[in-house]
Design a protein around this nucleic acid. Sequence first.
DNA 1: ACAGGCGAAACTTTATACAATCTTCGCCCG
DNA 2: CGGGCGAAGATTGTATAAAGTTTCGCCTGT
Lengths: 235, 235
Amino acid sequence: MAAKTRQKPDAPDASDRVSRIREGVTAAILEHRLLPGTKLGEDEIGDIYGASRTLVRSALQQLAHEGIVNIEKNRGAFVARPTPADAREVFEARRLIEPSIVDRAIDAVSPAWLDRLQHHLTEEREAELRGDARASVRLSGEFHRLVAEMSGHSIYLGFLKELIARSSLIILLYRRHDTPACGTDHHAGIAAAIRKRDKARAGALMLSHLNEIEAELFLKDPAADELRLADVLGA
Amino acid sequence: MAAKTRQKPDAPDASDRVSRIREGVTAAILEHRLLPGTKLGEDEIGDIYGASRTLVRSALQQLAHEGIVNIEKNRGAFVARPTPADAREVFEARRLIEPSIVDRAIDAVSPAWLDRLQHHLTEEREAELRGDARASVRLSGEFHRLVAEMSGHSIYLGFLKELIARSSLIILLYRRHDTPACGTDHHAGIAAAIRKRDKARAGALMLSHLNEIEAELFLKDPAADELRLADVLGA
DNA sequence: ACAGGCGAAACTTTATACAATCTTCGCCCG
DNA sequence: CGGGCGAAGATTGTATAAAGTTTCGCCTGT
């Protein structure tokens, strides 16, 4: 066996403990179990995962780099609270990147991937029917991540993971109505276009999907309520 | 003064020591003083910067997240060695993002920014005339970063910083001729288009600039020489 | 009664010590 | 003489402890 026995260099989240912590906290944030602004104490998380603060700190720093956690010097880590300006940037970036991702995904489409996609749609529909809001939110983001994985473009995938995580926080903060089932039909339509290898239609559907999500947000001027809150607290 | 006296939340690289380490190593990599594959020992770097391994480790993890350092479990950190496939992904991403960045930069253009841009072009030209290859490489990347800063889009800026750093490694590894002065004229042309607020021309110039850089690379099949090297070393 | 300041507690930051793993070099065996 | 086994050295991964900072409560003085 002269082949490289190296253990999957492209497996960033393997069995190491820091990744488990990172994924646990990420999942909690994505499922809206941890609300923006929540303090993430190192001891607290360390106790939960039975790990030392060294590992917790490493995980939190990664999450900070991904933009879903803010680390304030000498104060600790908090779940990020994206501003409306952040929200606009996130969706602008997604509108730019995701059509290219579906384009590449269609190039790389295969029966195995279509199966995964179909399976995901089923899961998503089931979660919605059963009214499981947490699962719906998580699966809704995972659809986009799945398409990015299909594309085989690791950089786009990495970028999109960040954008999806932040989108989840944004939707939680700024959604107008309680419309958790906003995009399941869109996802099915996009998947159908991918299956038919219709790049133009898939890209257009993705774009309108993103536009609709953003349109349902209430993005007032850049930090209005935050400033008001600061004034109340400070004065 | 009711204004927030918080110390610049958008200053990721401040005076803390871990950032100094990260920037020092980043600069060394971007200036091609540290070659791909170089081992970055924790004690070694710690001695250089007079810091403990805790801080060095934190800096290296950040660099790993940025994609310019690979951390292999129980073996240490190494300067990344992008594959030709990585190179293609990086330039595809840059071709997608940078035209949008110049577009936004033109929206946000101001005399102060134009001054900074002009000053940068001067610096770049001087470095090239004086034959300072290291400075040329660094400044060439900084031009793109400067445009991204002009755009005021923090997400694009973050993404592009990663892409620029990786591009520097890619160019070092795969450039055909020793043509360090490949893009100074292009940069001047792009800057001129920005100054004239000509979005179409600026975007087109940026695109052709990136295409020309990639065209000068020699990207053979996905990991041919690496495999050959691995065989030599392993067998 | 209230404002201001002092002090202790909790937390983060940094450093150091310990454990686990890998690498390397030498030695022994074939 | 070549190859493989093994122990010593070096390096990383993890945990714990010391140091510094912030925060909150309480107490005192006006």
